Amino acid sequence: MDQSQDILVGEVVINSYDEKNNSMNFRILMGPRGRERGLGTEATQRMIDYVFKNTKLNHLTLSVYDFNPRAKHVYKKVGFVVESIDESELEFEGEWIDSINMKLTREDWRKNKGM
Rank of each mutant, 00 (worst) to 15 (best):
M1E: 03
M1A: 07
Q3G: 04
Q3S: 13
Q3Y: 15
Q3R: 11
S4H: 12
Q5C: 10
Q5D: 12
Q5A: 15
D6I: 13
D6P: 03
I7P: 10
L8K: 05
L8Q: 10
V9I: 13
G10K: 12
G10Y: 15
V12D: 14
V12Y: 03
I14V: 15
I14Y: 14
N15S: 14
Y17D: 08
D18T: 08
D18H: 00
E19C: 07
N21D: 15
N22L: 03
S23Q: 08
N25M: 03
N25Y: 03
F26Y: 15
F26H: 11
R27K: 15
R27M: 13
R27W: 04
R27Q: 04
L29W: 10
M30K: 06
G31R: 08
P32F: 08
R33S: 08
G34H: 02
R35N: 07
E36A: 11
R37V: 00
G38I: 10
G38H: 08
G38S: 09
G38L: 06
G38M: 09
G38W: 01
G40N: 10
T41W: 05
T41F: 06
E42I: 02
T44F: 02
Q45F: 02
Q45G: 08
R46T: 01
R46C: 07
R46F: 00
M47I: 01
I48N: 07
D49S: 09
D49V: 05
Y50G: 08
Y50E: 13
V51A: 04
V51W: 11
F52N: 04
K53P: 07
N54I: 02
T55V: 09
T55Y: 06
T55P: 07
K56S: 05
L57Y: 14
L60M: 11
T61L: 13
T61H: 00
T61Y: 10
T61C: 12
L62T: 15
L62F: 06
S63F: 11
V64I: 03
V64Y: 01
V64T: 03
Y65A: 02
Y65H: 14
D66R: 13
D66L: 04
F67K: 09
F67P: 01
F67D: 14
F67N: 15
N68I: 07
N68K: 05
P69C: 03
R70P: 09
R70M: 14
R70S: 11
A71K: 00
A71Y: 02
K72C: 13
K72D: 12
H73C: 03
K76T: 06
K77P: 12
V78E: 06
V78K: 00
V78Q: 02
F80P: 02
V81I: 13
S84G: 12
S84L: 05
I85V: 15
D86P: 01
E87G: 08
E87K: 10
S88M: 00
E91Q: 15
E91F: 05
F92N: 11
E93P: 03
G94F: 12
E95N: 14
E95R: 14
W96R: 15
W96E: 13
I97A: 02
I97C: 06
S99N: 09
I100M: 09
I100K: 02
M102Q: 01
M102L: 01
M102I: 13
L104E: 00
T105R: 03
T105K: 00
T105G: 07
E107I: 05
E107R: 00
E107N: 01
E107S: 02
W109F: 09
W109Y: 12
R110E: 14
R110K: 11
K111M: 11
N112Y: 07
G114F: 01
G114C: 04
M115Y: 13
M115L: 15
